[in-house]
């Protein structure tokens, strides 16, 4: 059995103080803005939410944004350009609790896939002309700054975002869901897609998503990153028995959480 490392998804341990109208900022780096949308998708709760927080910056939907100290910042996206890094460092220096919101911020997600392709394959697609965007190695935000909490997922579950905010407001230590996707999946009475022969990543992926993909008959692609104690050896063996070659398995892992899984899992693959 491989040596399991304890993965910490948060550094908020205890001593969190109850917050009254915290100053909140919601920012995006390289990403599709879908995670920021997940916050807004709480249509029925949004008015209550606005009365409980002081939303100081949300450039995605707000015209007027205040550039100042924050109690709480949700940061979407990964670091893929020099500008991303600059914004991230600046915001971090002014923020008490920094939350990585969504898969790009957490794992690097799809935009980080280019790490495994040759630069000459995509170089011509970069904005070379006026040099405004300077390319950086794609990486999750925790590689550059301290992240206090992570809300994973592509996109994150909108209720999970609210639960986190409620916990912060109450001064309660937020809980990270670290069990594999299978736990909720079986509870939802789904037939196991691995047994059916599909290359489902459920057993090695952290749940909390209510197994939404598998409920719809679609296998898990690992968007919430590795679960608390993924047994990669056993999972890879299942996929090999299904007839998938190591190249396929590796590619599948790279798509949503490659940067988080490569260290422990890729050494098992040829």
């Amino acid at each position: 059995m491989q040596n399991q490392k304890v993965r910490k998804l948060y550094t908020i341990q205890s001593g969190l103080k109850k917050m009254n109208k915290p100053k909140v900022g919601i920012y995006g780096l390289t990403g599709c803005a879908g995670c920021q949308l997940s916050i807004i998708f709480n249509e029925d709760e949004i008015l209550d939410l606005i009365s409980l927080i002081d939303l100081r910056a949300f450039p995605f939907i707000k015209e007027k944004n205040y550039d100042e100290e924050f109690d709480l910042v949700f940061m979407e996206g990964l670091v893929a350009s020099a500008n991303d890094l600059e914004v991230l460092k600046k915001v971090r220096s002014k923020t008490k609790i920094l939350v990585a919101l969504g898969a790009c911020a957490h794992t690097g997600c799809i935009p980080a896939y280019r790490k495994w392709t040759l630069k000459e394959n995509y170089e011509h697609l970069l904005y070379k002309k006026d040099d405004i965007i300077k390319d950086e190695d794609p990486s999750p935000i925790e590689n550059h700054v301290k992240v206090d909490f992570t809300i994973p997922g592509c996109p994150p579950d909108k209720h999970e975002i609210l639960t986190f905010i409620k916990d912060v407001l109450k001064g309660k230590t937020p809980k990270t869901y670290n069990n594999p996707v299978c736990v909720e999946c079986r509870r939802n009475n789904n037939d196991c897609l691995l047994i059916v022969g599909k290359p489902c990543m459920g057993p090695i992926t952290a749940g909390g998503c209510h197994s939404i993909c598998i409920n719809g008959g679609f296998e898990c692609w690992g968007c919430r990153g590795p679960s608390g104690d993924a047994n990669y050896d056993a999972w890879i063996e299942i996929l090999r028995e299904q007839g998938h070659d190591d190249e396929f398995i590796k590619t599948r892992m790279k798509i949503f959480a490659g940067l988080k899984m490569e260290e422990d899992a890729f050494k098992i693959l040829k």
């Binding site: 079986r186 090695i204 299942i238």
Partner: peptide
């Protein structure tokens, strides 16, 4: 058994 276990909790849930 342990080496093959993926801790998916199918056994206890079902």
């Amino acid at each position: 058994g342990v080496d093959k276990c993926i801790s998916c909790a199918a056994c206890t849930t079902l």
